[in-house]
Each structure stands twice: as C-alpha cells, then as structure tokens.
Amino acid sequence: MSDLSSLTASGLTRMAKIEVVVDGSDEAAVRDLFLAAGASGYTSVTGVSGFGHHGHHQGRLLFNDRASLSMLITVVPLDRASPLVEGVRRLLDHRHGVLFVSEAWVSRPDYFAEPTTS
C-alpha cells in the first residue's frame, strides 16, 4: 500500500471503486442506486460467466440477454461510497449477488465528482 500512497504525490486522487455482480434482472436497480448515490457514471458488463456460491453461471446466451449475470462498476469520491455501499448491501440482503469495494486512483477526479442529472 505504501507504493499506492505515493500516487497522491503523483497527482492522482484516491477514490472508491465499487463492483457489483448481480442477476441481469437486478441490473437496473443497481444502476439506479449508483446514480442516486451521486455516481457520475458506471460501466456495465453483461453476459458475465463464473462460478460461485450458487454454482455455475453461464455467460452470454444467444436469445436471452436477461438471464446471465451483469457486472456493474463505478468509481465515486470517498464521501459518496458509504451511502452507495449501504444501498447495495440492502439490496443484496434479498437478491443474489456480490459486492467488491476497493481503492482506485484516478487522474481526472472532476470526471467522477459531478453527479449526472438524469
């Protein structure tokens, strides 16, 4: 971590990266939580395959975009991370999915600081 700390001196800004893997049917709910918590954007990867607590998950299917897992990734200023995490955890109390929170260092913090208006 000491190496990463030095990134501040390099002009990078520390933020929180939040990654959520959920059923495709829950993707919209997670997106809404991201935006409501002040995320300025997100990346969505559909058709995610893998193996975990609930066994195998097949990736992209030919004629069903909803059945596979989706991974949503966002980066937010640290002060917005906690409410967002609370919302996602609350959702995952009742739905399948996993949540990862980690540090991220960004070169253009203004990109992540302005919430979208939609």
């Binding site: 709910a29 939580l33 409501a36 409410p83 609370e86 609350r90 959702l91 739905r95």
Partner: peptide
Amino acid sequence: PDPASLTGLRADVATASRL
C-alpha cells in the same frame, strides 16, 4: 435525511417492487 438511509430506502423500493 442520512444519505445512506436514502439509498437503503431506494434498495427497499427495488426489492418491494418484485411483488
């Protein structure tokens, strides 16, 4: 309101909508 409480409430709305 506490921001965390509001995102939690939004999550509950999403869960409740499953009905």
